[in-house]
Write a protein that binds this DNA or RNA. Structure first.
Lengths: 174, 174
DNA sequence: ATAATCTTTCAGTAGTTACTGAAACGGGAG
DNA sequence: CTCCCGTTTCAGTAACTACTGAAAGATTAT
């Protein structure tokens, strides 16, 4: 079916620009759009990829939690299916990326602030001004990251109901 | 100064995982954290990169709108400075990524829906069920993207005041 | 006009990431 | 136990992306 192929291709392209490799995004798109459990061979055949690639990418998708393994009664091989709820998928991804990427940055910012504090105790006044500017910039970034973190937390905690509520609130407020 | 270096490194790492190349992210981090206009040679020297690389990356940052060119009176060479307002930077980036990545996906989804509509007019009932499932999945994704788009639009239009307002509203509402 | 100074471009290459295919692994059935 | 069927791992390689450095292009001064 061509509509599915089109969707899969686009999803793969988008994934790439967000730092997710194309094949992984495509596999996910395939599982999502067919809305049916597929086995490794189905995926290999449909997307023309090797067994190894399919295996590794499916595992990664399972690790993210947006694809689930599924044993069919009496069948030997494993099947995979995508979550059906986009909001839930988004929550899972947001949670993981926050943990992996935003939290470390926040920690680094605080570390930098501490380094500045320690390093400027007995410094000549000439250097002071630069340090002051840097300090301000760090503070600005810190504030931003904290707020963003809070928004993420809302999304993460509430999945669908949370997001739609968020949106309602937002759209009313402006 | 070591605090700056640490910040620059981390920012570069984060950029990478979000699909922005490391050097570009590092240059931006440098301009942001020093909070002072730097020229191409400053950047080259500080980050140990070639002239070509510096030139291209600086141009790209200017294209995104988060770095500005700056002519100093009586100086021949150009200087570059980062926007100081993180919220404004975020708005610019969000706007651009929405345009480049989300809008095309939404369009593709609609195209897929249309293809399904056209393709199923005289089809046997056996195929119907699959198509129905696919249609549902497309609809789910469409809804999600539309809502996300609206949220983005809020951020884009209002930058800092918008975002902080968003946060206040959110924190009160939950 | 020419020179001086800075910027941009781009072909070639280094470095990185993704993918394949074959071998090793695992576990249920006979 | 061994055989069979499916899964995972991983070394080697293909494909891609980022980077360099040198040459061409701008712009201002002389």
């Amino acid at each position: 079916m061509t509509a599915q192929d089109l969707f899969i291709r686009r999803w793969g392209e988008m994934g790439q620009t967000w730092g997710i490799n194309r094949t992984m995004a495509e596999i996910h798109a395939l599982l999502y759009i067919t809305a049916q459990p597929l086995c490794t061979d189905d995926v290999m055949e449909r997307l023309n990829i090797s067994r190894g690639n399919a295996s590794m990418s499916l595992r990664a998708l399972c690790d993210w939690g947006i694809v689930r393994r599924l044993h069919k009664r009496g069948e030997r091989r494993e099947y995979f299916e995508s979550l059906g709820d986009v909001w839930e998928m988004f929550s899972l991804i947001a949670a993981e990326r926050k943990r992996r990427e935003m939290d470390p940055v926040l920690e680094t910012i605080r570390q930098c602030q501490q380094m500045l504090d320690e390093g400027t105790l007995g410094k000549p006044a000439a250097k002071r001004e630069d340090v002051q500017l840097t300090r301000q910039r760090l503070a600005g970034m810190e504030e931003f990251m904290e707020v963003t973190n809070k928004i993420f937390q809302q999304f993460i905690g509430n999945a669908r109901s949370g997001l739609t509520k968020v949106v309602k609130v937002l759209l009313k407020a402006f």
